[in-house]
Amino acid sequence: MKKEKNSKTRFVAARKNSDGTLSEFKDNHGKTYDYEQALEAVEQGLIENAQPFTGRDGARHIRGVNDGSKSSNLKNLKDF
């Protein structure tokens, strides 16, 4: 069976730590991920609207897909 083009999961909500950094994500199916689980899913290509990158600190991080839209910034996702 062929998967549809838009069958990938998307992050639709995020939770932030007290310092404003993203700590958890919720996808469009209601599944929640801690940061490490989310990073693993993103690195596996399972999340449509996020991508992994290596920060200046040398650690792997998650960011939204850069398409010029403010809605793509993961910090702009609704809170949960």
Rank of each mutant, 00 (worst) to 15 (best):
R56Y: 15
V12C: 14
I47G: 06
D19H: 06
K78W: 09
I47A: 11
L46K: 15
T32Q: 07
M1L: 07
S71Q: 15
R63Q: 14
L22D: 04
S71T: 15
R10W: 15
Q51F: 03
L74Q: 01
E24S: 04
N17A: 11
A13R: 14
R63V: 11
N76I: 12
H29V: 07
V42M: 08
S7I: 04
E40T: 10
N6S: 10
L46G: 13
R60T: 04
K26F: 06
S18M: 13
M1Y: 00
R63S: 12
I47W: 05
E24L: 04
G20D: 01
G58D: 06
D27G: 06
K3G: 01
F53E: 09
S23Q: 02
S71F: 15
N49T: 03
T32I: 07
H29P: 03
F11N: 05
F80L: 02
G64R: 11
F25S: 01
E43T: 05
K70Y: 01
N49R: 10
M1V: 00
R15M: 11
I47R: 09
L74W: 05
A41G: 08
K3S: 01
M1C: 02
H61Y: 03
E48W: 13
G30Q: 01
H61C: 05
R56S: 14
R60F: 03
D19Y: 03
A38T: 04
K78T: 15
E48R: 15
